[in-house]
């Protein structure tokens, strides 16, 4: 064999080895990528699983059977709506404003039974949610559901801001209760002493125990109702769902 062809053979062999090396490199690379991706997918999957396991399902007491709310309409209406709300929560106020008249009309027409269940979600911002909810419970006890519903509406119409919740004083609450139709002598002392604080605690316990973790939580025919992007959109869909 000539020196020349020996050199060629050597070069060819070297090229083959290089190619094999490159193939091995490539395979290793693909396996590494696959392994890292598998780890990432596992972490994402695990994190999502943790989230899903931590997610609360809202299982509210059936409409009309809670001790902590005020209802409008006929209990046997074809649709039921339960609204868990905090008197301080601005979205609750907006949803109230956007749905109140329609819900009241549909309730009067016998199409829907609506129960409002106020509780204390936001008292970390000030004691207004407790004072207002206690006043609501007091008015409900002393003056009945119709006055309590009117008081509830007035509380939302005169909602203080989350920044300064205690701008709404006990005197303001008394004035609103009287405007709603309560007798001042019935409610003044109770409002000033926050007489129904334990009612608020129990209502809050029932709401949290039902899996309610935010406000407003709306339940239509027993199921959490989350549709809609904006408050107005949500209100429109809610009305459409029960009309």
């Amino acid at each position: 064999m000539s020196a020349n062809s020996k050199a060629n053979a050597r070069a060819q062999k070297a090229a083959e080895m290089r190619a094999a090396q490159a193939r091995r490199e490539n395979r290793r690379r693909i396996l590494t990528i696959a392994a890292v991706l598998a780890v990432m997918v596992t972490i994402v999957g695990g994190a999502i699983a943790i989230s899903v396991l931590n997610k609360d399902e809202v299982k509210a007491v059936a409409a009309g059977s809670s001790d902590y709310g005020v209802s409008i309409g006929d209990k046997d209406a074809p649709h039921t709506v339960i609204i868990y709300e905090d008197f301080l929560c601005p979205f609750c106020g907006e949803l109230e404003a956007a749905t109140r008249d329609d819900l009241a009309k549909l309730a009067a027409d016998g199409k829907v039974f609506v129960e409002y269940r106020p509780f204390d979600l936001l008292s970390r911002l000030g004691d207004y949610p407790i004072r207002a909810t206690s006043a609501f419970a007091l008015v409900l006890e002393k003056s009945g559901p119709e006055v309590a519903k009117k008081f509830h509406d007035l509380l939302y119409e005169n909602q203080p801001s989350e920044q300064d919740p205690d701008a709404a004083t006990n005197d303001d609450l008394v004035d609103l209760a009287v405007e709603a139709g309560a007798t001042e002598s019935d409610v003044r002392d109770g409002i000033e002493n926050v007489s129904h604080k334990s009612w608020v605690t129990r209502a809050t316990k029932e709401a949290i125990g039902s899996g309610v973790s935010g406000t407003p939580t709306v339940i239509v025919d027993g199921k959490a109702f989350d549709e809609g992007t904006t408050v107005d959109d949500r209100a429109r869909r809610l009305i459409a769902a029960v009309d």
Binding site: S51, V52, S213, G214
Partner: peptide, 8 residues
Amino acid sequence: KVTEPDAS
């Protein structure tokens, strides 16, 4: 946020 899906 992982453990607080409802808030998320």
